[in-house]
Design a protein around this nucleic acid. Structure first.
Length: 423
RNA sequence: GGAGAGAUGGCAGAGUGGUCGAAUGCGGUGGUCUUGAAAACCAUUGUACCGCAAGGUACCGGGGGUUCGAAUCCCUCUCUCUCCGCCA
């Protein structure tokens, strides 16, 4: 969420930058400013009323002490009037605050200056690519390979739970475990603190990272206890810093977490959801950084470079894409997507999304730091990225490394899998 | 699940209706002293909103109520702790 001051101080610039999202926010912005003026007016009036009321209450106390009952009683009548007035004003104020909150929550993050204009995926900007696209004699989709080698059982998942909950077996299960261990160790070597977070979160956490209230339908909700299954480790991990005021020397905060992720994916269907391409439960290692506002774009680049080393080590053909305004997520200021090429399906699959949210999340989280220069509390910047999401990596590994003798395991993983081929 | 206790500033911990934004201790910051450090001493030390400022307002787990006035009384929710039961 943007702060009203961000909007007030740079109104025309904010409107201009938001237009990169291929949508006009002029009306939203004006509504926010009007409502804030209204809020201030009510606030001032209320404060004045309360001040009178407080002063009168003290006077009444004194009058009683002095034994001046009559004067005290007449003062009481006045106090009651003030109380009614303040009650009414408080209601108005709350209403105004709610309205402002609603308006602000509908305004997306301001795209970074480098975000290209564009309507959709098609306008995204290719930053760079790497790796070799394999020339296969026989192309097989991973869901066929999975059943051929009996390593991932989609049917069994259907039986036990439902679609989108595959069962990993034997070398398939070991491959999952190996990838998780590989990603976590790489992250640790890069300086990230390992976190094992809760897999369910409360409402306040869901709000803090922006899943609630808008994207409620994306999460599994345990109504009996009012808890939500996490859609990504970003939620519990970033919320570690909710309501925290950091010192400048605490930067950068670097955390990594493996977690299972749960997504309802309501409305998804068709061949995009085939096999491992889109699941309700999947595994992911996430990296999160909390950064000083002046350094956050350096941090973003560093994170992109880090994720790049992972796909390189896994010997996967990849490309890095900068999302255009129309494709950029609501909360992000700048996002780089990583896609790997999956030869069996002949498709690019998104395996990571690395974003700088600037202060957009921090505002909701109330994540701030004490500035050394002016002693002010300032919103920190939050960033995160997948490093990496497993299913599509597995899909690409299976499809790209398939040979007549079996599926070869990349060198870096063999130390974790303890086997070099699935056959 | 049953019974009881509790939630106060960075931490510990007082405060049971009026001058309490809140004693005291610790911690933090600045200073005095010192060659330096420690100790000691002095001062300072929350967040947010309105205001050019002076100043004002709100916040003692959340929400609601009683009262002229609530950290303090009442209701309610959440969480924590202790004991019992169950249990990986």
């Amino acid at each position: 969420m943007l702060t009203i001051n961000q909007i007030r101080n740079n109104t025309t610039e904010v409107i201009k930058k938001l237009s990169v999202r291929n949508k006009n926010f002029q009306v939203h912005i004006q509504n926010a400013l009007d409502e804030d003026d209204n809020r201030k007016r009510i606030q001032a009036e209320l404060d004045e009323t309360l001040e009178k009321s407080n002063r009168l209450a003290k006077e009444i106390g004194l009058l009683y002490k002095e034994g001046k009952q009559n004067e005290a009683n007449s003062a009481k009548n006045e106090a009651v009037n003030l109380k009614d007035a303040s009650k009414e004003l408080t209601e108005k104020l709350n209403l105004s605050k709610e309205n402002l909150q609603t308006i602000l929550s509908e305004i997306p993050n301001i795209p970074h200056i480098s975000v290209p204009e564009g309507k959709s995926e098609a306008d995204n900007e290719l930053i760079r690519s790497g790796g070799q696209i394999p020339k296969l004699k026989i192309k097989k989709a991973h869901w066929d390979l999975a059943s051929e080698y009996d390593i991932i059982d989609f049917e069994l998942g259907n039986k036990i739970t439902g679609a989108g909950f595959p069962v990993y077996k034997s070398k398939g299960a070991k491959l999952q475990r190996a990838l998780i261990a590989f990603f976590l160790e790489e992250a640790e070597n890069a300086g990230y603190q390992e976190i094992m977070p809760p897999l369910m979160v409360n409402e306040a956490s869901g709000f803090g990272t922006g899943q609630l209230p808008d994207k409620e339908g994306q999460m599994y909700h345990m109504t009996a206890d009012n808890l939500y299954m996490i859609p990504t480790a970003e939620v519990p991990v970033t919320n570690i810093l909710r309501d925290v005021i950091l010192n400048e020397e605490d930067f950068p905060i670097m955390m990594t977490a493996y977690s299972a992720c749960f997504r309802r994916e309501a409305g998804s269907y068709g061949k995009d959801v085939r096999g491992l391409n889109r699941l309700h439960q999947f595994d992911k290692v996430e990296i999160v950084q909390i950064s000083h506002p002046e350094k956050s774009y350096d941090t973003l680049n560093e994170m992109v470079n880090y994720v790049e080393t992972l796909v390189q080590k896994l010997e996967l053909p990849y490309r890095i894409i900068k999302l255009c305004g129309g494709d950029l997520g609501f909360t992000s200021a700048l996002t780089y997507d990583f896609e790997v090429y999956s030869a069996g399906q002949d498709k690019w699959l998104e395996v990571s999304s690395v974003s700088n949210f600037e202060s957009f999340q921090a505002n909701r989280l109330k994540l701030r730091y004490k500035s050394k220069v002016d002693k002010q509390t300032v919103l920190a910047h939050t960033l995160n990225g997948s490093a990496l999401a497993l299913p599509r990596i597995v899909a690409a590994l299976l499809e790209n490394n398939y040979t007549e003798n079996g599926i070869k395991i990349p060198e870096v993983l063999q130390k974790y899998t303890k086997f070099d081929i699935i056959n």
